[in-house]
């Protein structure tokens, strides 16, 4: 068994060997704490940990750190997402110190969607360090007790380090190799891009197993429950790196109740994913549709969540 890194609920569930469930909580485009608290109450008990996005798609929202603290207060285990788009190494390391002081233990290292996609396309992109270097930064903070500069940190840094992976981007032959780099850099767990094409995902997982990476890192398959036909089409046509087969779109088009069909598709995906060797769990990104998460997890037979 791998040594305990931060002792968060997510880490304990993964170490127990249970099939883990995480979900994404998008903070509001405003300062109303009640919005986060309402989502926390809605999702509490349905997952093992909850990611708070960091200005996702480069749209300004309440900070990930603030959202994580509110989840923590509500009794949920947060995963703080950090992108390298908006902050340099000084700000990022400072935020990590603050997050640890506030009791946050799970982190997800991301590049971040380019600012061109968001509501401030005129912004200056930072990209001082990049996502794999951010993983290394976390590992150094935790295992060496040192900042990027080499200076020593006072006190313990219990960190459970997450990273993203996209099995569906190009060049396809590099996708497993890139995961291997993230593992070597220090990732403890991986949350993947949304899976709609289980066959392609299974092929990627086969490559992962061939390198034995599934024994070094916990892999959670990403899921985006399709909420509407328009959203599914948008993902297919405009979101780089998400592969939505036409068959999914057709099923939604022919459905009497699109939302129900979207949940049904998600449940079928979960069932198929559970069969894949080496997969440690799922990560549900119900963008703007968080209320669907408890239903999906319940119907998938994944409740109650383990108490560890």
């Amino acid at each position: 068994m791998r040594a305990m890194k931060a002792g968060t609920n997510l880490e304990k569930v993964l170490r127990s060997g249970a099939f883990a469930v995480t979900a994404e909580i998008g903070p509001p485009k405003g300062a109303v704490a009640a919005v986060v608290k309402r989502k926390a109450d809605l999702l509490k008990g349905s997952c093992d940990a909850y990611n708070v996005t960091d200005n996702q798609t480069a749209i300004v929202r309440m900070s990930s750190l603030a959202g994580c603290v509110m989840l923590k207060e509500a009794g949920l285990d947060p995963v703080m997402q950090i992108v390298v788009r908006d902050r340099n190494r000084i700000a990022i390391q400072s935020d990590i110190l603050g997050a640890v002081a506030l009791g946050i233990g799970n982190f997800l290292c991301l590049s971040g969607d380019h600012q061109r996609f968001g509501n401030h396309p005129q912004a200056k992109g930072v990209f001082d360090i990049e996502s794999i270097q951010l993983i290394q930064t976390f590992k150094n903070l935790r295992d060496e007790g040192r900042f990027i500069s080499g200076d020593e940190i006072s006190g313990e840094m219990p960190l459970f380090i997450g990273a993203a992976a996209n099995p569906f981007a190009d060049p396809v032959d590099f996708r497993v190799a890139r995961l291997a780099k993230k593992v070597r850099a220090g990732a403890d767990f991986i949350q993947t891009q949304a899976v709609y094409d289980v066959e392609r995902f299974a092929t990627w997982m086969k490559g992962v197993r061939q390198l034995g990476l599934h024994k070094e890192v916990y892999i959670l398959a990403g899921l985006i429950p399709p909420k509407s036909i328009g959203m599914a089409r948008y993902m297919r046509d405009y979101v780089p790196g998400i592969h939505v087969p036409d068959e999914i779109i057709e099923r939604l088009e022919n459905a009497d109740d699109v939302k129900e069909e979207g949940q049904k598709i998600t449940l079928e995906l979960i069932e198929a994913l559970e069969e894949i060797e080496g997969l440690s769990g799922i990560h549900i990104m119900a963008v703007g549709w968080e209320e669907a998460v408890p239903h999906i997890v319940a119907k998938a037979g994944l409740l109650p969540r383990p108490v560890v």
Partner: peptide, 21 residues
């Protein structure tokens, strides 16, 4: 690279194109 990455193509690389354009 639009993000100045140093560790290979990000998850937005599709068909040889950058995700931003």
């Amino acid at each position: 690279c639009a993000k100045g990455l140093l560790n290979g193509p990000c998850g937005g690389s599709v068909d040889g194109q950058c995700e931003i354009s």
